[in-house]
């Protein structure tokens, strides 16, 4: 009886510990960016909405709820990825490098129905004086189902915003 009980309990444990889905894939926004852009010549500080700092890709599940994925996570800190992308675009437009750039990202997620949302606010200062301020947003729909398509669309969106931002700054000079 004791053996039988121990066997049943062990089976239950094994069932309980049955294989689950484990994913080691990590998503990156900066795969196609040259290593030069990782050496930032601009002072860019990115501030994310708290849910976005979880490390997982965020989905908007309802109008009032957000869920960060457990198994679909960023390869590196999202802040630094966004900073690298912006740095690349600023370099392309040869924007002056003595600016203090603060980026506040309030939206950087998709939704269960395939929409993609990016919203950020850029506050640029020169010598502690306000130099440039602008809000940028991007809304789109992913091409396919799944997180990979979502990430691709997020990348496209942040590239578009980065380009516009760099262009605006270069015209400001």
């Amino acid at each position: 009886m004791n053996r039988f009980t121990a066997c049943v309990v062990s089976c239950l444990f094994l069932i309980g510990c049955s294989s689950q889905e484990i994913s080691y894939d990590r998503y990156s926004l900066v795969e196609d960016i040259s290593s030069q852009s990782f050496n930032s010549q601009y002072d860019i500080a990115v501030d994310l909405f708290s849910t976005l700092e979880d490390g997982g890709i965020v989905l908007k599940t309802t109008d009032v709820t957000l869920r960060a994925a457990n198994h679909h996570r960023w390869a590196s800190d999202l802040k630094s990825q966004i900073a690298v992308i912006l740095n690349k675009h600023l370099s392309e437009y040869q924007v002056r490098n003595d600016l203090d750039i603060d980026i506040s990202v309030s939206k950087f997620y998709g939704s269960v129905d395939g929409n993609v949302y990016i919203d950020l606010f850029a506050d640029v200062k020169l010598d502690d004086r306000r130099y440039f301020q602008h809000s940028y947003s991007f809304t789109s729909k992913q091409k396919e189902d799944g997180y990979a398509s979502l990430v691709k669309e997020l990348k496209r969106g942040i590239d578009s915003i980065g380009n516009k931002f760099a262009q605006d700054l270069s015209l400001k000079e």
Binding site: G16, Q20, L59, R67, S111, V112, D113, K141, D145, Y147
Partner: peptide
């Protein structure tokens, strides 16, 4: 940790599936 109730992540779906 013992009785795993891990659920899959919700997948974004364009097609509605």
């Amino acid at each position: 940790l013992v009785f795993s109730s891990d659920s899959k992540d919700i997948e974004p779906s364009v097609s509605g599936k």
